[in-house]
């Protein structure tokens, strides 16, 4: 009978042998040439301008910090008005209940390829807001959209007057732009996928 340690080593060896057989797709002939050509073309077109645009590390952090600080400031500055925006007068208890409800809206973005640093812009109509971004009608950020399905979740607050209007979602990537109009319908339950689009 084998000692315990030797037995464990055998097991490890078997596991490693199995791990070494895990398959990976082998690209066809000319893969390197094709990839290098694309990479060098991309470098020729994007690197100089990208480098000009990119500030130094500390400056980039500074900008990000400043942006975050201004966003926080904007949210804090509007804090006293939050109740006015999302809660109608007490005389309309039903409408008050409607407007205070957050409706998560999920948008499926089907992308045929990876889009690194795509710009997503959400423009809200009057009486529609995003939970946590009171008084902000346009919200823009950069995100990496992967090939395949991506889910964008928006915690939407809809006032009763907001029903019937449209939320505008724009996705921009390397000069290309996709616009999605999302109609604001009366609440029909939460968590539903409201719209499906291809980018």
């Amino acid at each position: 009978m084998k000692p315990r340690r030797e037995f464990a080593q055998d097991e490890d060896a078997r596991l490693v042998a199995l791990l070494r057989t895990l398959p990976a797709p082998e690209p066809g002939a000319g893969f390197e040439d094709r990839l290098l050509e694309k990479a060098m073309r991309a470098a020729r077109h994007t690197q100089p301008s990208a480098r000009r645009r990119q500030p130094a590390g500390w400056a980039r952090w500074g900008w990000q910090l400043a942006t975050a600080a201004s966003l926080l400031l904007a949210i804090l500055a509007t804090a006293p008005h939050w109740s006015d925006v999302f809660y109608p007068p007490v005389a309309q208890p039903l409408a008050r209940h409607d407007s205070a409800t957050v409706r998560p809206v999920h948008i499926l973005v089907q992308s045929p390829r990876q889009m690194s640093g795509a710009t997503i812009r959400v423009t809200l109509p009057a009486n529609v807001g995003l939970d946590g971004y009171t008084d902000i009608q346009t919200l823009q950020w950069q995100a990496d959209i992967s090939a395949g399905e991506n889910r964008l979740s928006l915690p939407v607050k809809v006032g009763s007057a907001g029903v019937g209007s449209e939320i505008l979602i724009e996705i921009e990537y390397q000069g290309a732009r996709k616009v999605l109009h999302l109609p604001v319908t009366p609440a029909s339950g939460t968590g539903a996928v409201e719209s499906i689009t291809r980018t």
């Binding site: 990976a24 797709p25 690209p27 991309a42 470098a43 992967s146």
Partner: peptide, 28 residues
Amino acid sequence: IRRMHRMAYRWTASQVEAEDLVQEVLAS
């Protein structure tokens, strides 16, 4: 390049994303 692609595939679990990732690194 092939080994980079293989490694990128192991991480992303997608051939397309692996190729994009390697291309981006090479371009940089």
